[in-house]
């Protein structure tokens, strides 16, 4: 059995994503990164919100939690604080994470809680068939932007860095080997890690904007990105308007669960040595 497929719930395949959708490639990259790191399948918690990307967790053979739209990171925070020893990974989309989920995203980053977040960014709401999202480039078409999107899109990497994430990277479904490498780094960072993975949506983004087939969209993605390391050496006009890919930010900051356990260490007793039942409580402050 191929190592990759051993991470899947094969009875659930083939998956629901459209022919040529980049989400499958990104899911494959995550599985290969997990395989390279030899992580214990029984200790991985995969949490997702709602949308095309969020269906990924159902196909993967871990403890998987498919939550409500935008709320994956909040569910994941509860999971992680309750079980800091588990590896918690959130798989989310551009709409799920940065629109309805935006508040939870910036707070999870601010706390620097040890969660790896993969934002599968196809620049559109795919599941609901083609509306624009906070990551739809200005001017592009969508069913709810028939005259061209009049809103600017987030720079998710800058947003994550500003909010406090300690590992931020951007990859794509075209640059697969690099994406696997970035995911490996993200999974090893003890803190809040964000990997934005540009993904092609031929069915809606591609058709509505006449970009063409899945392969044409991969070329489009390749064309609109430039490797962060190479960018420094390139003339400005080569980098202008391009999205940088690769590792974009890495810093080491105290991780939330560690800090909480440290702060409460002096009173912390294991649950087992409490006889249960009534515990004395000082009169609380008014």
């Amino acid at each position: 059995m191929s190592e990759t497929l051993s991470y899947f719930r094969q009875d659930r395949l083939p998956h629901i994503w459209c022919p040529g959708c980049g989400h499958g490639t990104i899911t494959g990259a995550l599985v290969r990164a997990i395989d390279r790191l030899g992580l214990d399948k029984n200790k991985i918690m995969l949490v997702s919100g709602i949308g095309c990307s969020s269906r990924a967790v159902g196909y993967l053979d871990f403890d998987t939690l498919h939550t409500a739209h935008g709320r994956a990171l909040a569910f994941a925070t509860g999971l992680k604080v309750a079980r800091p020893d588990l590896k918690v990974i959130v798989m989310t989309g551009d709409g799920d994470c940065t629109a309805i989920g935006g508040n939870h995203f910036i707070h999870a980053a601010r706390r620097n809680i040890d969660i790896t977040t993969i934002v599968m960014n196809n620049n559109i709401y795919g599941m609901t068939s083609g509306q624009y999202s906070p990551m739809t480039p200005k001017g592009m078409l969508a069913t709810t932007a028939p005259y061209g999107n009049s809103e600017r899109d987030f720079d998710l990497a800058e947003l994550a860095k500003a909010a406090g994430a300690t590992y931020v990277a951007r990859g794509t479904s075209f640059h697969v080997p690099m994406l696997i490498e970035l995911l490996e780094q993200a999974l090893q960072n003890k803190g809040f890690s964000v990997v934005e993975a540009l993904s092609q949506c031929p069915t809606y983004m591609g058709r509505k904007n006449k970009i063409g087939s899945a392969v044409d969209m991969l070329e489009w993605i390749k064309g609109r990105t430039v490797n962060a390391k190479a960018a420094a050496a390139l003339p400005p006009e080569k980098v202008q308007g391009k999205l940088l890919i690769g590792e974009l930010h890495k810093s080491s900051q105290p991780e939330y669960c560690d800090e909480y356990l440290k702060a409460t260490a002096k009173v912390r007793r294991a649950w087992k040595n409490i006889d249960g039942g009534l515990r004395g409580c000082e009169q609380n402050s008014d």
């Binding site: 925070t77 509860g78 309750a82």
Partner: peptide, 14 residues
């Protein structure tokens, strides 16, 4: 948590 929605999500996760 950052709001009540997150609070409800977190207790379900835990």
């Amino acid at each position: 948590m950052e709001d009540e929605i997150a609070s409800a999500a977190a207790i379900i996760g835990a």
